[in-house]
Amino acid sequence: MATSVILITGAFGALGQAVARHLAAQGHQLGLLDAAPAVPPALAAEFAAHLQLPALDLSQPAATQQAVAAAQARFGRVDGLVNIAGGFRWETLEAGSAATWQAMFTINLLTAVNTCQAVLPAMLAQGSGRIVNIGAGAAAKAGAGMGAYAASKSGVQRLTEALAEETKLRGITVNAILPSIIDTPANRRDMPDADFSRWVTPEALAEVVGFLLSDGARAITGAGIPVTGRV
């Protein structure tokens, strides 16, 4: 894909920033979407040439559609979407609650559903588009305390597969990346005794995202691609 307009959800987080930097370096125009109430000042300066949309509740279809409309008004088109917005909660079924399952499905799956639906009209009208969802390697088999998270990320993979089938003859590709533990400051704080060198870095994931958005990946759709470092 030549210079394009790419929307990134969860853009202010560790992975979102890495993806944004990688794509900006490639010359793409970006729409940076995030639930944070304000853009961190350093990011606001770094990405001043791009569209910045904080305080977004992507679990709400109307708000999501308004964000995509703002990007279309700014750039005239939307060529790609990278769904990074999400969260994690460790909780056993015995000690937990159904509310945790609802929360994980809302932040990890419903946000992706809403953004995919919001960008589809533009992509279908222009006969081209790239969608990359961030799933999780852990979705293949849930460990103890991972049920809600793994189930929601499994839903992201099923969303990816279904949408890929719906759009495969219409110029759109839809793929998912399945990371292991990502080397972020938050994960280092939560697991201080781990061997961080084995984790996959945000920058390595950003390169895979960039490839899936490119013309070189035009023949790939409906895939779930493990990117696991050495975990």
Score class of each variant (00 low, 15 high):
51 L>M: 13
95 A>M: 07
192 P>R: 14
90 W>D: 15
175 N>E: 12
55 A>G: 10
220 I>A: 06
114 N>M: 07
176 A>L: 11
74 R>N: 04
164 A>D: 00
21 R>L: 10
23 L>V: 15
196 F>Q: 10
231 V>R: 07
30 L>C: 09
124 L>I: 13
225 I>D: 06
76 G>A: 04
138 A>P: 00
151 A>G: 10
164 A>V: 11
44 A>L: 07
106 T>S: 14
122 A>H: 11
27 G>V: 07
176 A>K: 04
50 H>W: 13
158 R>F: 13
96 G>M: 04
126 Q>N: 10
156 V>M: 06
84 I>M: 02
20 A>V: 07
207 E>W: 00
19 V>F: 06
27 G>K: 11
17 Q>A: 09
159 L>A: 09
136 A>D: 07
85 A>D: 07
18 A>E: 10
213 L>K: 02
200 V>E: 01
130 R>F: 11
77 R>N: 11
170 R>H: 10
21 R>E: 15
98 A>N: 02
221 T>V: 12
183 D>T: 08
31 G>L: 12
42 A>Y: 02
14 A>L: 01
76 G>V: 09
191 M>C: 05
156 V>S: 01
70 A>E: 12
202 P>Q: 08
210 G>T: 08
87 G>P: 04
25 A>I: 00
181 I>K: 06
106 T>W: 01
179 P>F: 07
229 G>W: 11
119 V>S: 05
135 G>Y: 06
188 R>T: 00
209 V>H: 01
129 G>E: 07
209 V>D: 03
42 A>R: 00
119 V>A: 05
80 G>L: 04
101 W>Y: 14
152 S>A: 15
17 Q>P: 03
92 T>W: 05
224 G>Q: 13
